[in-house]
């Protein structure tokens, strides 16, 4: 059988894809919380910074962002006298994380704003500061609300990692393209690759489901 010979190289690609997904999803989550809370901040500077970040990265295309970071940023670095050349892996993780983080920020903001007003009043009556209220009262309650959209974003992010093959990172999409060049057996290769992405997406969605159950533990307690 021909197709068994493709398994090894493709699995190597899968591993890179998984690594990219994990790193960029973590980076994206951090950015999402930072910018989502930043957009709710009363500090005009933090707020403006967060809004700008969110709008720019949601308003442009991921591939444009990736190419900009990969091709344009080093040139900008030259102009201002900094070395802004990064390893393609860093550029990939950065672009994916920045992109998904901007979408995640809106999820965080929305979920935090959906926390009932009465919870904020209770927090005020106990004299929590605004920051404490956000991080200790609102955010933990908003977290379970955020998980389903976060799950979708994580899968979106997994799919988006395919684009880093275009800056020659050896992920699954890149390996597929290599094999196709070598063998011209596109039907087999791309069918296998589609199913591999599908499998990884299912596993990721299941993991996010577990995480959702975990952060929402307090919701399921009943008398």
């Amino acid at each position: 059988m021909e197709w068994t010979r493709y398994i090894d190289p493709l699995l190597q690609g899968c591993w890179v894809t998984i690594e990219l997904t994990v790193y960029s999803t973590i980076l994206g989550a951090l950015l999402a919380f930072g910018a989502g809370m930043g957009k709710l901040s009363h500090n005009p500077l933090i707020k403006a910074l967060s809004v700008t970040y969110i709008e720019v990265f949601r308003g442009t295309s991921l591939l444009v962002q990736l190419f900009w970071l990969y091709f344009a940023l080093p040139l900008l670095g030259e102009l201002i006298g900094l070395d802004l050349r990064f390893h393609p892996v860093s550029v990939g993780v950065l672009a994916l994380g920045l992109n998904i983080g901007a979408y995640g920020a809106e999820v965080v903001r929305g979920a935090v704003q959906a926390v009932p007003r009465t919870q904020y009043e209770a927090a005020k009556a106990l004299n929590f500061t605004r920051t404490q209220t956000l991080w200790r009262i609102a955010l933990p309650q908003a977290l379970p609300e955020m998980m389903p959209p976060f799950g979708n974003l994580a899968v979106q992010n997994l799919k988006d990692t395919a684009l880093v093959s275009l800056i020659s990172l050896g992920d699954l999409a890149f390996r597929a393209e290599q094999l196709r060049n070598l063998t011209q057996d596109s039907t087999t290769i791309y069918t296998m690759v589609l199913f591999m992405y599908f499998g990884m997406a299912l596993v990721l969605a299941a993991l996010m489901g577990l995480l959702e159950r975990h952060v929402g533990r307090w919701r399921h307690r009943r008398r």
């Binding site: 009465t118 009556a125 106990l126 929590f128 500061t129 200790r136 309650q141 307090w218």
Partner: peptide
């Protein structure tokens, strides 16, 4: 203040509802 609808923090145990503000405020 005690509210009509209690407004306890649903994500905290009873104990933490009582200790959170004394600790951090």
């Amino acid at each position: 203040m005690v509210f009509q609808h209690f407004n306890l923090f649903p994500h905290m145990t009873v104990l933490r509802n009582l200790t959170e503000a004394p600790r951090y405020v």
